[in-house]
Structures are given as C-alpha cells and as structure tokens.
C-alpha cells in the first residue's frame, strides 16, 4: 500500500514537472517535446546512476513515466555491453524495451483497424 502511494506521489511529481515546463517556460512545448525530453533525460540520469535508485524506491512512479522508458533503454545497453561487448551497445536498449514498443505498434495498428477517429 505504501509503495502504491509512493508511486502516486513520485509519478505525479514527474508529470507536474512537465506541466510546469509547458505552462511556465516561454517556449512552445508540445507533447512531442515532452516525450523526447523525458526519454533522453531519463536515459542519461539512469546512466549516471541517479534514476536506478529512484526506481528502487518509487517503483511504478518512476518506471511508468516516459523517463522510465529511458531508464530501461540505458540499463539495457549497459547490461548488454557487459554480456556481449560492443554489439550489446547497439542492441541492448532496444532489446530491453522491445516488449513495450512492439505492444504500442501492435495495439496501435489494431485500434486503427477497429476504430475510426471521433474528433
């Protein structure tokens, strides 16, 4: 239960940060910018060893936001380098996130077949 509450608070705060970036900075920030920014920054934070402890502590509060996707990419690359060397640097991140990406593509396609845009 405590873990769920923690996920709520930390996940909420990560979303809040993005909202403040949209509303308070003078730049035009679109969802595309937010998604790209979170993945990249999440991967970098993970590489320097900051995001890992956050995931240990906040669980889904840190893995569900897109920065968690970046974390998975970074850790996948590092783990794979340890196992396979240079080849792992290229494939590791994609392997670690392949389920989520494939799910998005497959479900996206299925939804496009089933539904029509409502506007």
């Amino acid at each position: 239960m405590e873990k769920i509450l923690l996920a709520f608070v930390i996940g909420g705060l990560l979303c809040l940060l993005a909202q403040l970036l949209i509303d308070l900075t003078p730049f035009t920030i679109t969802p595309g910018h937010i998604l790209v920014g979170y993945v990249t920054v999440g991967a970098l934070l993970s590489a320097v060893g900051i995001y890992g402890p956050l995931v240990q502590w906040a669980g889904a509060g840190a893995t569900v936001p897109l920065s968690g996707f970046g974390h998975a990419l970074a850790q996948g690359a590092i783990r794979s380098v340890e196992q396979r060397g240079l080849l792992g640097a290229f494939g590791g991140g994609i392997e670690a996130t392949s389920i989520g990406v494939a799910a998005a593509v497959i479900f996206g396609y299925a939804m496009a077949v089933i539904f029509n845009p409502k506007g």
């Binding site: 949209i22 679109t30 969802p31 845009p117 409502k118 506007g119």
Partner: peptide, 18 residues
C-alpha cells in the same frame, strides 16, 4: 472544418493534449 484543419495544421484529433 475543425477536424480537417486540426490534423493538417496541428496534431491528430485524438491526441490527448491541452
């Protein structure tokens, strides 16, 4: 037309954005 303009000039209509 709101929906034709939205998808051409901005983002898809079903995108959850403010």
């Amino acid at each position: 037309h709101h929906h034709t303009a939205e998808r051409q000039y901005r983002v898809p209509n079903e995108l959850g954005t403010q």
